[in-house]
Write a protein that binds this DNA or RNA. Structure first.
Length: 200
DNA sequence: GAGTAGATCCTCT
DNA sequence: GAGGATCTACTCA
């Protein structure tokens, strides 16, 4: 198991990064409450050229983190309820990001259940970006922190996904983005029960 | 099983 | 002051 190097995040091809993040392991360890899971669904947001991205409207206090160097976390509150976790990629000044939409729980499931106020494990616990954010304990106050700390990192355990198992589809919930909503920027592992939506 | 409404709060206009 | 990168529960069939 190896933490992904900074060079992984600094590449400019955010779509490729989103695809390669499938199968990697997301680890959080806030206050020694360890949780980890395998990433099974992602979405690419190509910064300034992408209407669906927050950064498209321009640089604001909220999106400032996305304009920074890759390898940091962008956490955003949606609909007043859901904390969404994004990985900032690209070089400084390029506001590319990858949204983690679903993971498969590996360790620290007790902590996830506690955060979700659930009693037993089922596939809904980390399915969908809002649930990932909650079960992994993300909060908007963690916006901008590094992915190379003891509290938060992405690791590679050598798990490989055959190309035939990777699916692509239009992104979810971004109909307002016009023709950009049709771009196939969502990637997922086919057949994995933790992937959100119907076309698994 | 499918479709719809309500929750809920931070950010930008 | 409006709306959003969503989820859940409830209704109806």
């Amino acid at each position: 198991m190896q933490t992904l190097p900074l060079s992984f995040y600094l590449r400019t091809d955010v779509v490729k990064i989103a695809k390669e993040l499938l199968g990697k392991i997301l680890v959080t360890n806030w206050n020694n409450e360890f949780t980890s899971g395998r990433i099974v669904e992602t979405e690419a947001y190509a910064g300034e050229s992408d209407k669906a991205s927050h950064a498209f409207k321009g640089r604001t206090a909220r999106t400032e983190v996305m304009f920074g160097e890759g390898g940091t976390a962008y956490v955003y509150l949606c609909y007043g309820i859901h904390q969404m976790f994004n990985i900032v990629t690209g070089k400084k000044g390029i506001p590319h990001a990858v949204l983690i939409r679903a993971v498969e729980p590996l360790a620290g499931i007790d902590n996830m259940l506690k955060r979700m106020d659930r009693k037993k494990l089922d596939e809904s616990i980390t399915r969908g970006p809002g649930n990932v954010g909650k079960s992994f304990g993300f909060h908007t106050s963690q916006c901008g922190i590094s992915l190379f700390s003891d509290e938060l990192y992405i690791a590679d355990d050598g798990f490989k996904i055959p190309r035939s198992k990777i699916g692509a589809s239009p992104r979810v919930g971004v109909d307002y983005a016009g023709e950009h909503a049709a771009w196939h920027y969502r990637f997922f592992i086919k057949g994995n029960k933790y992937v959100s939506g119907k076309n698994r």
